[in-house]
Design a protein around this nucleic acid. Sequence first.
DNA 1: TTTGCTTTTTGCCATTTGGCAAATGATTCT
DNA 2: AGAATCATTTGCCAAATGGCAAAAAGCAAA
Lengths: 189, 189
Amino acid sequence: MKEFIDYILQFGTLNQQQIDLILKKITTLELQKDDYFSEAGKVSNQVGFVLDGIVRVCYYNNKGEEITKYFIDENNLVVDLESFETETPSSAYVQAVNDCKILVFSRKDWRELSDTIVGWDAIVHKLISKALRQKVERRSPLISEDATTRYLMFLEIYPNIVNRVPLSYVASYLGITQSSLSRIRKNIR
Amino acid sequence: MKEFIDYILQFGTLNQQQIDLILKKITTLELQKDDYFSEAGKVSNQVGFVLDGIVRVCYYNNKGEEITKYFIDENNLVVDLESFETETPSSAYVQAVNDCKILVFSRKDWRELSDTIVGWDAIVHKLISKALRQKVERRSPLISEDATTRYLMFLEIYPNIVNRVPLSYVASYLGITQSSLSRIRKNIR
DNA sequence: TTTGCTTTTTGCCATTTGGCAAATGATTCT
DNA sequence: AGAATCATTTGCCAAATGGCAAAAAGCAAA
């Protein structure tokens, strides 16, 4: 649990009593490879924090192709924000890429923290804002580059992921075919 | 100014006294075509709201190509969020695409609203969170599509923009060359 | 080790997109 | 109107990427 507290404390200060309040709310969730953390069509009712493993967010486009929107690895928040905040059904799947251990807060507990910890909302705002900005910053630059550059950028952005996820997921993240990615990797060495 | 108040009220409730407090802080900024609202290398100290005109956020990649990250048209917030929140120099230019009229809050005034209006922070959180999610949702799907589809998606996302901005800006937004975009447009009709 | 299953690589060719330069069109200024 | 400037379109060819299917490699269970 320490990882999560360290993570939170990056964004603000909490005393021990407040930390204990948070720890009391935490439950642990173990997902097997390919299990879903949340699913398209369902309202996402949890905020998670990846302790171990890699999760991806993906969806299907109108040609039925599966697209990976992004990856989330250890010590990062996993939450389908729009669905969680607006309590509307999501359009994406959040899926364990390998076996995962995830800390979880229910919506009820998350709200109670907001009501009981002064400054919690401010921390959450910073944390959410940063996470969302990061998504934009990671995704946007890809579009103006060719496939090889995109792959190299991916390696920089997610240095610990490439060897732990199937090639096809990376390809769909980069918007290229699996075959093209395979050829690109051959040419890089 | 009504536009801005309406915009804010989508995200929470305010009484007349609070609204007056906000209105008192507003100043108006007129930008000529091509003027910058904020610049790379400088700390962004303003939150804006576009009353009239179109603004774009752009940057230069390592090949010196100018890339349009996104467009902002009427009745939307314009803020270089990371720079504004963390008071660090920005890496992007925010530029008027045509003559613009923009409502502006200084950082100081923005903070004072946070200190004086109960619930202001909650409203701002919702508003920022939605704006950021929108950026992700608009950008991400483009990457897995071919250029023609990207252009069609652009038309849906920004229906009021295509005829008001140079072709080259749209092309750089879509990650294709101006010539390709020109050919694509020819083929669509 | 063998078998079966999944993932990755490769070959072949079609399609898409880029690069460059010239032509055309539009706009502004004089 | 004419000139200058800027934006857009087009032609030509090269390079990048996709589609499809088969081969190869990796992996796990028997």
